[in-house]
Design a protein around this nucleic acid. Structure first.
Ligand SMILES: [Zn+2]
Ligand SMILES: [Zn+2]
Ligand SMILES: [Zn+2]
Ligand SMILES: [Zn+2]
Lengths: 135, 135
DNA sequence: CTTTAAAATGTTATATTATTACATACTGTT
DNA sequence: AACAGTATGTAATAATATAACATTTTAAAG
């Protein structure tokens, strides 16, 4: 028989790394994470990258591709990272997850002219945040 | 007086690297480019990255962030890389620039709830291309 | 409780991607 | 010719990510 394994619970390293990212007000890079978790016994890059891979896979975090950095998912509705969108301030580097049902639906239904079937998308908007616009 | 410099023409290294990317049927990575252009006298990473930066800046090429690779712009209408969208096959890795005026307009007009003003976006769709769907 | 497959961990080394820093040369305007 | 801006050449290094392999933990199944 093929065994069924439990979902929903994180392993030790995954939990440590998720907690760190979840508490961070800004996206964290892999080696920044490594630096912070060394006191908890996570000493080498593969340990960090493995946890990150898993957390991305299960949708607890997302990767901001243009910054090689990771944020915790703040939406419950971007199921398993299939539909992600972020706003990125080019000045202060603030990153927020865009939570817009219409946008998400619009893009999830999008079909291109060449007959591709899309399973997933990632959208990154760049501009100036409210605060940086004023300055 | 502030000098006016010529636009529209590429420097030697920029032209060599643009030609290579433009002819390539697939996105090229920086070190792949470096390998190919060494016979033309471009020997070191900074030479490649500088040309890439410039070409991205003027909109002749785009960076596929999820692959750290570069493609030539096939649209004339994504002026200076302000509005880019790509379809990426997860199986054969084929990448195409999505050229859809409606999509582009929809996203260019998108305003988020936190008062950010967007200047630019990059969208990457993932899925299976026509050929890979059949298999 | 024992066996077992899957998942996770620990560790060393290495590969890949990108930038810093500094010296020099080219380009086109004044 | 002088100048400012742009581009180039080169060496060194930083930052990001993966390969490979040994070991341990987890929890379902028997
Ligand atoms: Zn999310
Ligand atoms: Zn800002
Ligand atoms: Zn384009
Ligand atoms: Zn394909």
């Amino acid at each position: 028989m093929t065994k069924m394994y439990k979902e929903n619970s994180l392993s030790k390293n995954q939990q440590i790394i998720f907690d760190l990212i979840d508490k961070s007000p800004e996206p964290l890079k892999a080696y920044t994470i490594l630096f912070y978790v060394q006191k908890k016994g996570i000493k080498a890059p593969p340990q960090v990258y493995r946890a990150l891979d898993k957390l991305v896979e299960i949708g607890k975090i997302h990767k901001i591709e243009s910054k090689n950095a990771f944020v915790a998912c703040k939406n419950s509705n971007c199921e398993i990272s299939k539909a992600t969108a972020f706003s990125i301030c080019e000045r202060c580097e603030e990153v927020d997850e865009v939570s817009d049902t219409k946008l998400s639906k619009y893009l999830s239904k999008f079909n291109d002219k060449k007959g591709m079937t899309f399973k997933r998308f990632n959208l990154e908007f760049f501009g100036l945040c409210k605060r940086c616009k004023i300055k």
